[in-house]
Amino acid sequence: MTDLFKGYKGAALSSLKSYNVRVWSEALIKTTRGDFNGIILPRSENDDDRHIVLKLPTGYNVGIDVDTITDMTEHGYKEAHYKIPEKEFPTSPDKPNVKLFGTGGTIASRLDYRTGAVIPAFSPGELY
């Protein structure tokens, strides 16, 4: 159940729940500062509980202050499944054999493109 509101807590979580709008849904948010249309993104757990993160159609992210929200409606849903293709690494008998061990760290990490978090996921298959 909490996964529907990934990373949200406090006021922002109550707001999403009260309008029945989930993370990854396409939503129209009406606020005292005007209307905002976009996809509701998960929020980083360390950020405050007063804003909802929205990905605009132009690709930019913005935060909406929950205190300014007057209405929120869901009109679509689009969860992102991000997967890097793994490819077979070509081999040839006249080349030396090298083993690469992954332990993590920045070299193996990449951005979770939707949420913006750096994740230490490492799939050596990505290398090729």
């Binding site: 690494f89 081999t91 040839s92 080349k95 030396p96 054999n97 090298v98 083993k99 690469l100 061990f101 992954g102 332990t103 993590g104 193996a108 230490p120 996921a121 490492f122 799939s123 050596p124 298959g125 290398l127 090729y128």
Partner: peptide, 10 residues
Amino acid sequence: CNLATEKLFA
């Protein structure tokens, strides 16, 4: 080289 990979930890 011919590169083999293995993920030990993340």
